[in-house]
Amino acid sequence: MLEVERITFSYGRRRVVDDVSFDIAPGEIVALTGPNGAGKTTLVKVLACLLMQEAGLVRLDEVDPLMRPVKYRRLIGYLSERCPLYDEMTVDEYITYRVRLKGERNLRVRRRVSESLEMCGLGDVAAMRIRLLSQGYRKRVGLAEAVALHPRLLLLDDLLAGIDAGQRKKTAALLSAASSRSAILVTGHELHELLPWCTRFLVMSQGRLVASLRSGEHDRAELLRLLETHMAGNIAEGAEV
């Protein structure tokens, strides 16, 4: 489904993503983790068509974002790390606007909006202005917008930040359900929270992909230890450099 081949990206002379390759199959929930400054957000931005890679290839269902950007963007759902929203709009208005912007036909817009509001537990705040929402609810609005059109690939940057424990469980359940239709790439540092529902873990450090671990191949404790070892090792390596 998603193929990433030898992606490289630099901000000026500073190489932020360096020769990264991986793929994601349908139904997979992949966690992209690593220390701060590892290049996770930049990589997600490249995959979300917000940055153009210097080298390498991205393909989603054989669609190349550089050749057919509009078609590619129609296949993805993206939740930004900062989760920006239009504060003056109500939740319902915002999701409706975003669904229309994604080119959904008028007859289906209402149904899509209702579905995504219900899926993300936003029914009770649908008529509320976004500026009045807490950080957790804002994340849910961003998520509702990302999943609204059942995209083929969901890119969720720092999804769990600012969400309380109860909501994290609900989010995990939501994403497990969404994975039947979409491949999911989620970034974050919350290994304990990600372990139960992610099928694969990619560890990045200093722009490079340093480990790829499947949850089915290790028991949870061992996987956690391996991930922590990789991350700690790379933090130490980064400090030495």
């Binding site: 917000l50 509009v70 993206y78 930004s80 900062r82 920006p84 239009y86 912007l101 994604k102």
Partner: peptide, 14 residues
């Protein structure tokens, strides 16, 4: 300033 440009640019619009 608000970062909404990212959301706009990741949408399937020209």
């Amino acid at each position: 300033a608000s970062g909404m440009i990212e959301m706009l640019m990741s949408s399937p619009v020209r």
